[in-house]
Simulated assay, not measured.
Amino acid sequence: MSIMEDAALDLRLRTAAADWLTERAQHQRELATQAELAEFIFEGRRVALLDRQRGIRKPAFLDAALSFRTRYTPPGHLPPYEDREGPDGLLRYKYRGEDPEHPENVALRRAYEHGLPLIWFVGIAPALYLPRYPVWLIADEPQQLQFVVALDEAQRLIVPGDAVGTERRRYVERLTRLRLHQPVFRARVLQAYGTRCAICQLRHGSLLDAAHIIPDGQPAGDPVVPNGLALCKIHHAAFDQNILGIRPDHRVEVRPDIRKEVDGPMLRHGIQEMHGRQISLPRQRSAHPHRHRLEARYEKFRTAA
């Protein structure tokens, strides 16, 4: 097979994989299990998108890596990528081991050298992943045993390794939150709560949000499951606007003036009747809302009331 034929095959596979993942997401199947990712069919043959044993996936008939992954992090622990931002604000992905010439590192390096799009699979639960794509490797830092990752086209324009100004760094970090941190946080919180609103039990995933107990950017506002609540959009808005609060004993409290209002059935059934209700909690105790965070957020609610 010629170099041009190899390049055309590579492009077709990457395009087909991205289209397949996008189609899944459009049918509310954005998350994928390891088993599902092994069943992808490309031009009549099965091509696993994720390697069962390795963190970096390179099909035998490709010259460069197709995907890489970050393993699942237990509730309450920051995902590994949180500590891998450089002075430029861009994320880093560590080599496999300490040998820059390890075959997996070489496969990633070839993707970097050819500017190829990759899929980043982020662990949401054991053997369950959220795909982020396309992403690119835009620099190789062998002294630090890592590659520099761009999450979108705008980040590809940043010169890796340069110390950037405050505004530029904020811009890069905002893109990272939008493309990685927020989707991962949402996926992990909804997974922990069984894809249902903790207050009203609504199970339509497209109508659910991951609400921060302590807002993002504030001390203790980390994007971890114990700082999150799965809430439907109306209860998320009501929580953020201090129309309702959640006590440290996990009971809903509706603001007194709101309980006295007379409006329509949404206010009566959707808000007022939630007063005193016990919220549902994740099965895994380590995923429960952190008590001190709830106390701090409830005190803010009481002050607002």
Rank of each mutant, 00 (worst) to 15 (best):
S2Y: 10
I3L: 15
M4G: 11
A8V: 14
L9G: 10
L13V: 02
R14G: 03
R14E: 02
A16H: 11
W20S: 05
R24W: 04
Q26C: 00
H27L: 13
R29M: 08
R29N: 10
A32T: 06
A32W: 03
T33L: 01
T33F: 04
T33C: 01
A35R: 08
R46F: 11
D51H: 13
R54M: 12
G55V: 00
R57N: 12
R71C: 13
Y72F: 14
T73L: 09
P74V: 00
P75L: 01
H77S: 10
H77V: 13
R84I: 00
R84M: 08
E85G: 15
E85C: 14
G86V: 12
G89N: 01
K94V: 14
K94S: 15
K94A: 15
Y95L: 05
H102Q: 13
V106N: 12
L108S: 03
R109H: 08
R110Q: 11
A111I: 07
H114E: 14
I119S: 00
V122M: 05
A125T: 02
A125H: 04
Y129A: 03
L130C: 02
P131D: 03
R132V: 09
V135Y: 10
W136E: 05
L137I: 03
L137E: 03
A139D: 09
Q144P: 04
L145R: 15
Q146N: 08
Q146P: 02
V148S: 08
D152C: 11
I158C: 04
E167R: 03
R168M: 13
L175R: 15
L178F: 11
Q182Y: 13
Q182F: 13
Q182K: 13
R188C: 01
L190G: 02
Q191G: 02
A192S: 06
R196Y: 04
A198M: 04
I199E: 05
I199F: 01
L207V: 04
L208C: 06
H212W: 00
I214D: 02
P215L: 06
P215A: 10
Q218M: 10
Q218E: 12
G221K: 04
D222N: 10
D222I: 05
G228D: 02
A230Q: 05
L231K: 05
I234M: 09
A237M: 11
I243L: 15
G245R: 04
R247G: 08
P248E: 05
E253T: 14
D257Q: 07
D257T: 15
R259C: 14
K260W: 09
E261V: 13
V262G: 08
D263G: 07
G264A: 10
P265S: 02
Q272E: 08
M274D: 01
H275W: 01
S280L: 05
L281C: 00
R283C: 08
Q284I: 11
R285A: 14
R285G: 08
S286P: 06
A287R: 01
A287F: 05
A287N: 07
H288P: 02
L294E: 07
Y298T: 06
E299G: 07
K300S: 14
K300N: 11
T303L: 14
A305M: 14
